[in-house]
Design a protein around this nucleic acid. Structure first.
Lengths: 201, 201
DNA sequence: CATTTCGGATGACAGGTGTCACGGGCAGGT
DNA sequence: ACCTGCCCGTGACACCTGTCATCCGAAATG
């Protein structure tokens, strides 16, 4: 009997996944949480062996939650199950210590198999995504560029971003200009969108 | 026995919802589709009585799919089940003839009840969302403003938008300026983001 | 030790952007 | 007929933005 923890901020999806996985005779959902920062405690308390982690969660995202699990409970394996197959996500999830990466539009019957393989110590990674994340390579953005792009995501003017990070407007424009070049965009909003799509933020 | 159709582009969520709902003794999932434009045909072929529709789907979105169902199969009721509780979505879904609107972070056990109520001819709407959609009111955007905002979503410069819709740059800037005023934004990217959040696009 | 890279900053410049005033045409109400 | 609202366009203006050159100090890399 494999003991599972589910982490997903959407209660309906969480409950539905629990129903799906409980149908398998060798799987048992022993804990469910809706926030990333509750994963480690819940895993410890429930004695879970495999954790299914969504990336988009309040408190702590699924990738950082996988890293926390790796650190606090090294025996527990984690499988990232997320909506967006952004190449950068795959790389970051694996680097964070996750044992698998599956997108939410894979067939439902394959999920249980993925769980079993992860539990057996194997790596499970969507082959298309693995290829994509290899050709894309890691993020070329510097720390500041990444930070400023996240602030540019909502379309704020340069002045607002500069005020928020306590930098001069000129510096902000320089960093964003570099980011625009690296993403191949022509405006900072486009650069922010592209960077997010690739999982660089 | 209530006959259900599930429409969601994420196969994993679709299968999980099917597992969840099949646990109920009075419910039966008789069809599953991953595209909005397959809903009507599948509903007709399967004799579904209630359709659960996600909004974000390829081919045809869930709201337009509800409208198509209303037109082609008036006896079939539809329940929109979606990730984003955007106020504008609720209004548009109801206007399109949907009998209910539920967000994906409602507790899993409530879903079956929502289905039963919709099947019984009742309206099911998340109370918080209903209130929000009332205070927000309908979209104040004109047709052109809405269209240009969707093109501005990805951060394209005015020149690119003007070329795409065959308008002069000045006209595009005028429409976008009006949209910026109506959304309370300061840049077109911000206006586009706000409009999307409210379900105006 | 030298070089490179990064963060930070300034100044300048061309071009993009948001706003406003104004004009015209076309549909739908009263 | 009149008014209103939407659509389309022009021109002008101030301001914002993206780019580039240039500088500095710190840290990592060779």
């Amino acid at each position: 009997m494999i003991r599972l923890l589910l982490a997903d901020d959407q209660a309906l999806v969480r409950g539905a996944l629990a129903a799906l996985l409980d149908l398998e005779s060798d799987l048992e959902v022993v804990a469910q949480v809706g926030r990333g920062d509750e994963v480690v405690d819940a895993a410890r308390a429930s004695g879970a062996e495999v954790c299914l982690l969504d990336i988009e969660m309040p408190g702590l995202n699924g990738i950082d939650a996988a890293a926390a699990l790796r650190r606090e409970l090294p025996g527990v394996r984690s499988l990232v199950v997320t909506t967006f197959g952004r190449p950068g996500y795959v790389r970051r999830a694996i680097e964070a210590g996750a044992s698998g990466f599956v997108v939410k539009d894979t067939p439902a019957r394959q999920l249980a198999d993925a769980v079993r393989r992860v539990h057996a110590g194997l790596r499970v990674i969507d082959p298309d995504l693995a290829a994509e994340s290899l050709i894309d390579g890691p993020s070329p953005l510097t720390g500041r560029e990444r930070e400023l792009l996240t602030y540019a995501l909502d379309g704020s003017p340069v002045s607002a971003i500069a005020a928020r990070v306590h930098l001069s407007e000129g510096t902000v424009r320089n960093h964003l200009s570099a980011a625009i070049g690296k993403t191949g965009a022509t405006t900072r909003s486009e650069a922010a969108r592209i960077a997010q799509e690739r999982g660089w933020l």
